[in-house]
Every structure is written in C-alpha cells, then in structure tokens.
Amino acid sequence: MSESCYITQKPIIIQDVVDRVVRPEAGAVNTFIGTVREFTKGKQTLYLEYQAYESMAVKKMEEICTEIKRRWPDAEPSIAHRVGRLEITDVAVVIAVSTPHRAESYEASRYAIERMKEIVPIWKKEHWHDGAKWIGDQKERQPGVPAKEDIQ
C-alpha cells in the first residue's frame, strides 16, 4: 500500500493521488487542486518557490489524515504537496478524499486544506518583477503560539 501523504519536487500527477483513495466502498471522490495564481491583490507573481521542513511536514499531513478519519470514520484521504520552483498555473497541492456518500467527501476535503494552512511546515515565496517575499500569516490565530490541541 503506497503512502497516503507525500511531498515531491516533481509535478504532482493528480490521478496518482486519486488512485490512492479509490475503493469499492466509496461512492464519492472529492479532489481539491491548489494551483499557482498569477495575481494576488492586483500584484503580479512571476513564479513561486515552495520550501518544506519535509520530515515534519509529511508527519503533519499524516496527522491531518488521522484527524479526518476520526471525524469521518469512513473517509480515506490522500494529500500531496509539491516543493521547489512552481510556475503560474502549476499544481502545488492535491487533496483527494473518498467516502461512501458525497457530503462527507466535501467536508473532509475542506477540513484538510484549512488544517494544511495551520500546522504543516511548508512556506511559499512569491517572486515579483520588483522583488520577492516569503508569505506567512494566511491563517494565523496568534503568531508564534501553537494551539493547545496542536501540542503533543
């Protein structure tokens, strides 16, 4: 059985992530694909650079999958994230969740991407015509302080 969560330098093959969750018990597979956007608040991005604390990031992605299975016991999730230099429209993240019925697959998929932005140590650097900046704070509750439930 292949790993359900992984980080790769190479382009993510969407079908590969989907295949990890397809099974006879499922009647729905929800796929979320996060891509590189050209304009953010009117500012043009030339390309993105993603960096990960890879060993910890995979562990945290697996933790999210465990959380999903706790909340939606019949769900089967898989998450892949790409690192390195990504061009506009490239796929940065793919989340696939299979469930017996469709409602849970949407809910679990949404849960996965929101949690990614809280606890998975992956960062993006936006490169523009006139400079570059590491982006943070897209969903910080209190900078520098982990939520109680995220400390083990």
């Binding site: 993603y50 604390y53 704070d137």
Partner: peptide
C-alpha cells in the same frame, strides 16, 4: 523533534529545535 512545543518546554540533549514561521503551504 518535529512536534510543536509550548514556550515553557525544556530543551534536552540532542533535541532538534526548529523555528517554524507562519506557514503558507497549499
């Protein structure tokens, strides 16, 4: 050692301590 720690946690010998700035994956 790849787990978030609270501010009063003591560092032990051999621990790997990582600074995790606000994340922006996805």
């Amino acid at each position: 050692n790849e787990e978030f720690a609270s501010r009063d946690t003591l560092i032990k010998k051999g621990d790997v301590v990582a600074f995790i700035p606000p994340v922006s994956g996805g």
